[in-house]
Nucleic acid binder design. Sequence first.
DNA 1: GTCTATAATTCGATAGAC
DNA 2: GTCTATCGAATTATAGAC
Lengths: 197, 197
Amino acid sequence: MKSEHKQSVKQPTRLGIIDAAQSHIYHKGFGATSYANIAQETNLRKGNIQYHFKSKDELLQAVIDQQIAGIRQQLESWSLDCGTTYDCVERFIAMVDANADNLSRYGCPMGTLNSELGKDHREQQHQAKVMFDLYLRWLEARFSAILPRKTARARAEQLMVMAQGASLMAHIHEDPEIVHRQSALMREWLSEVCAAR
Amino acid sequence: MKSEHKQSVKQPTRLGIIDAAQSHIYHKGFGATSYANIAQETNLRKGNIQYHFKSKDELLQAVIDQQIAGIRQQLESWSLDCGTTYDCVERFIAMVDANADNLSRYGCPMGTLNSELGKDHREQQHQAKVMFDLYLRWLEARFSAILPRKTARARAEQLMVMAQGASLMAHIHEDPEIVHRQSALMREWLSEVCAAR
DNA sequence: GTCTATAATTCGATAGAC
DNA sequence: GTCTATCGAATTATAGAC
């Protein structure tokens, strides 16, 4: 109970490094992210960053952990004041729609990271995959309110497919309108799913 | 008319390099592909490869050009003996479905390459994007047989979104069944699109 | 905790022998 | 056309001063 003291509670430098790394990995990819890049963005020296994270993989793990924590918190807050199944799931679609600009510029943070790690860092991709499973299980739980378990799982998967496909296509064409158009289609689809209960 | 002679017609070494590069880029990503990798897979020396391709970007361009040519040829053959709109478009879905194993292992060749290049090689991504536009325009032309131009374009985009989303999700979960399930849903969707004419 | 200095690789690219 | 040799730059990672 008295183990952590002083800066171990906050660790502002460490958190700043993680933030800068997350941003750079999102914008340029993990392979194109070096200690030198993060040192520049944080105004720290390279050696300092390497003191906090002995290897690039360790830093990547910290970034993934922070993203997972963020998603957990987001889904928790979404679960609090949920209305109908439509209203709940629509929040997910609204989030995608609201991020159209970033999605078209840099792709989906989860999708692009997992896609890259799936090629040459399969071990760490297994950790990053948890982000997807969190969304999938949350969506499945919402659909389970009005659908059989197996159908609910299929609908959750289908929505994730549409969201990821929309993000990828928007990123490739650098066009946020693709996200907007596909978000509208997702809402139509959701209406039919909820109506056909 | 008499400009090309000897090995300039075939260029087996050059083509072998392109094939090895395409394979390695697909499996490991462009950033993780080096001259040394390709030299090993082709049993050539690094200097030889660099004689044929002065820079990595030049090699990447050759790989993209070959992929574009392959898609052009594929779509041309698909256009020959096309039946109904459903039968035509279903060929696209069948192609996705038949490649479920590779898609789940390495992702979609177009999608993952464009996704990576979109982050730190935007200029070359503009060339790679042509692959998407070829499929999109071909699908749009098929849907145009039974739908207004604007609607046809929307349906083509929607199908590409589903196919790319399915590939990404299957890659992330390393599960070809996701491709099979989503292919079935694409066929259902296509039936409704063609029926609601 | 922060920083400098440097080791140890690896990579892209060039020059030149054969 | 093919290959050897090498340069210069960038990278991860380590050792040690402050």
